[in-house]
Computed example of a mutant assay.
Amino acid sequence: MHHSSLVMLLLLLVFAVIHSGGAALRTRAEAKIGARAWRVLFAALSIPSAVVVIGYFLAHRYDGLRLWNLQGVQGLIPVIWVLTAISFLFLYPATYNLLEIPAVLKPQVRLYATGIIRISRHPQAVGQVLWCFSHALWIGSSFMVVTCIGLIGHHLFAVWHGDRRLKARFGDDFVKLKQSTSVLPFAAVLDGRQTLIWSELLRPAQLGIAIAVGVFWWAHRFISLGGIAFLHSRLEGLLS
């Protein structure tokens, strides 16, 4: 295993501890310092750790062994972008109350049974798997495989951890929600426990996600060797 893969696993572990640990502490922290203050503190820790993870990934994504190289396969690029766009629709679902993210409105924990939750109770985990699959298909390095293992492992833990926290907070209401939904996409729809209402998916936040996908597509051209080298030097300074 290339040394950068070990560093990546360590960075992912730190992010997982901050993110999932912060979620576990939320109830007690909000009782002590308030919901808005906790959200600001949580973001102040989570966002920089996520930026470091993303930056390190960009700088080292081709490290290690090249396990496969499909980049010359005709038609692969549109497939990668379609899968990536779909992954974003799951990663950043329209169930978010956008003004609660920066604590403009008071952040609250809610049970959702509509929109994308009808497809999967844990859309972020589904989106992460899709993102990992599409990018691993394109990049094909051992570093990318290790990164995917770390990311998917964290999200599988988050599925269990999230269900556990919601059951503790909402009790029987969450049990009923769990019985009518599924983690596996469309499983509850196919077995008759859930009915899709497509109009619930047409929300303004999804337009924002579509715009973000376009911005990321446009920005990929600037991920040049020079930019990667600059980012790498800054990250090495932070990690040394």
Rank of each mutant, 00 (worst) to 15 (best):
L166W: 02
I117M: 14
F230G: 08
Q206K: 11
S180V: 04
L70S: 06
R193K: 10
A31K: 13
R234C: 15
H135Y: 06
S4P: 00
R61H: 15
S233F: 09
K32M: 06
V73D: 03
R36S: 06
P48N: 10
A59Q: 05
Q124A: 11
F88P: 00
S46L: 15
L45Q: 00
L130W: 04
A136R: 01
A59G: 13
R164W: 12
R165F: 04
V79W: 06
L6E: 14
R221N: 11
H161T: 05
L99H: 06
I223N: 07
V215T: 05
H155Q: 13
W138A: 12
Q124K: 06
L190E: 05
Q71K: 06
G226D: 12
V14N: 00
G171M: 03
F186E: 13
L111P: 03
S87G: 10
A24T: 13
W198E: 07
A136Q: 06
E236Q: 13
F222A: 09
L130S: 00
H3M: 05
A59H: 02
L65S: 07
S199R: 15
V79S: 08
I86W: 02
D172Y: 11
R110M: 09
A29L: 08
R28F: 08
S4I: 02
L151V: 15
R36C: 08
V53H: 02
A125M: 10
I18E: 04
Y56F: 15
V159A: 04
S5D: 10
I228M: 14
W217M: 10
R164F: 11
L239P: 01
A43R: 01
I228S: 08
L184S: 13
R110G: 02
L225E: 15
T147I: 06
V189C: 08
R66Q: 13
A59L: 05
E100G: 10
V175N: 00
H232M: 03
A94M: 05
A210S: 03
A168Q: 10
L89I: 02
S233D: 15
R121C: 14
V7E: 06
Q179D: 15
V17Q: 01
A35D: 00
G153K: 00
L9W: 10
V159P: 02
L9Q: 06
Q124I: 14
P78G: 09
L105V: 14
V175H: 00
M144D: 04
F174N: 12
F90W: 03
S142Q: 02
V175R: 07
F15S: 00
W218T: 04
V17F: 11
H161F: 14
K176M: 12
E236P: 07
I228G: 07
L177D: 12
L151Q: 14
V52S: 02
L130N: 01
I117K: 04
G34A: 04
S141K: 01
V53P: 00
L9R: 02
L6S: 14
I223H: 02
A43E: 05
F216Q: 04
P123Q: 04
A50T: 09
F88I: 01
A23V: 12
H60D: 02
A24Y: 12
R26Q: 15
G153H: 01
R164K: 12
I101S: 01
S180I: 01
L13H: 10
E100N: 05
Y62M: 10
